[in-house]
Amino acid sequence: MNPAPKQRAAAVPAESALVERLAAGDLEALGRLFDRFEGDVRRFVQRLGVQASDADDLVQLTFLDVAKSSARFDARCSARAWIMGIAAIHVRRHRRSVARLFRAAAAHVFEARRPDVRTSDDLYESEESQARFRKALEKLSDKKREVFVMVAMEGASGEDAAAAFGIPVATVWTRLHHARKEIRATLAEGEP
């Protein structure tokens, strides 16, 4: 799922060059960045808790912000992680809206009415286990969730995540460690 370290290292300069071209006013570079990262950003925002129906809006906001912020991009960092960092900011704003909170609450109510059909054997493979995993992800704080999704799920390096979120690398590892612990604890709560 995650790109191999070597592939990532090779890809960074080309991606960075695209952001630099964009900063110089080349909008074609924005199209190329979109082609390359749209899927990543869409998956990333959904993993951070955005409904699929809202993902388009978040993707659009993210890439428009990429165009506006391109002059501030540090070419030593991964463009992919940088773009995800921008997406995370928009997701945070999105999640704070009261309407989304109500929608999320309604979704929880709906899920609670589903019949419990899981067994211990298919705990990690079943659809139900995926739903529980997502719920566990949802229970994390924003900071832990962002780090967990970017590093553990999207394969960004600790250094890139640190640059994207503006935090020390050690903080990335700490948050990641606690995020894993909390997710596993949440999953274990429902285990027979």
């Binding site: 899927g39 699929a52 995926q130 995993f133």
Partner: peptide, 19 residues
């Protein structure tokens, strides 16, 4: 679980429109 966490993707048409 992480590897099995698939999320809906945009269709090529949706992607082109959004682009």
């Amino acid at each position: 679980l992480i590897d099995a966490d698939a999320r809906p993707e945009a269709t090529p048409l949706e992607r082109r429109r959004l682009r």
